[in-house]
């Protein structure tokens, strides 16, 4: 969204010399994991009149995110100085443009920002809902997914129904080319239902895959010659090498790095679910 060098029919804080007496600045920080991009934004407004409007709820701050490559364009509103937004990694690819601005939340019948250019004189402006009141310098980043979202990734684990009739805790078998996770009847039925719910994928990873992976890594550390020839073991070793994970690191850390921050992903998914339910 090209905001700079626009001529607005009223003074806009941060736009050229519309309001020389006040500034509007934003700083951006972008982080990511396999599932999300996290944008932390801080906005500093030097206009007292605009600040007042924001405090009264008559104006608000907006983080505008646009990715032409995936036709993604969204606006996130906030009213505090610092704000954090999370965006699905599946929505962004290539150049992403971030802009922070302030906009009117309703009609302002006689708007006159303090410090406006003398050319505006004593004119008061009628501002409509949604009109832009301040703009900050934008920011670009490249959304580059290391993970190939279309490529089939052969799983090293398989979840199976155990052959024992009675209830029992989860069991793991490491003696095949795939790690076999054995669940009793009830658990297996529940697992079958829950794995189809996207919100719960991260939780299932944390609940089932994380401890199993830790167990497998512990067994690998024992340098069991029988395991070395198995595909899951070779695959895990390759992954450890790719990630530059050394033998000295403990299995909890190794497992979390292989699964790309499973705890955070589970917490973020829970937060998403919780805010969707509230709304």
């Amino acid at each position: 969204m090209r905001l700079r060098h626009r001529s607005f029919p009223y003074p806009v804080v941060g736009n050229a010399d519309d309001v020389p007496g006040a500034g509007f600045q934003a700083t951006y920080e972008v982080a990511s994991d396999r599932g999300y991009y996290y944008v932390n934004v801080s906005a500093a407004c030097g206009s007292k009149s605009l600040d007042k409007l924001i405090k009264k709820g008559q104006a608000c701050l907006v983080l505008h995110v646009e990715c032409g490559n995936t036709m993604y364009r969204r606006a996130f509103e906030f009213s505090t100085e610092n704000h954090r937004v999370q965006i699905r990694a599946a929505d962004l690819h290539g150049t992403v443009e971030l802009n922070v601005m302030a906009r009117a939340c309703g009609v302002l019948s006689s708007y006159r920002p303090d410090g406006a250019h003398p050319d505006y004189g004593t004119t008061a402006f009628c501002i409509e809902q949604g009109d832009i009141l301040a703009i900050a310098e934008g920011y670009l980043f490249e959304a580059e997914t290391v993970h190939d979202s279309l490529k089939r990734i052969g799983s090293i684990m398989v979840v199976e129904q155990s052959e024992h009739a009675a209830d029992h805790p989860m069991e793991v078998s490491l003696n095949s080319n795939k790690i076999r996770i054995l669940l009793c009847d009830n658990d297996f039925t529940l697992y079958g239902k829950l794995k189809a719910i996207p919100h719960l994928t991260s939780h299932l990873t944390t609940t089932i895959v994380l401890p199993v992976l830790m167990h497998a890594l512990t067994e690998m550390d024992k340098s069991d010659a029988e395991l070395v020839g198995l595909k899951w073991c070779q695959s895990l070793q390759r992954r450890l090498d790719e990630l530059g994970i050394t033998e000295e690191q403990d299995c909890l850390l190794k497992a979390q790095r292989i699964l790309d921050m499973p705890i955070r992903r589970a917490l973020v998914a829970a937060e998403c679910y919780s805010s969707n339910t509230e709304n």
């Binding site: 907006v62 505008h64 606006a75 906009r103 949604g130 009109d131 832009i132």
Partner: peptide, 13 residues
């Protein structure tokens, strides 16, 4: 759209 941030309007608006 040059002046108003249409992204913040609802469909009805």
């Amino acid at each position: 759209g040059g002046v108003t941030l249409l992204d913040c309007l609802t469909k009805s608006e």
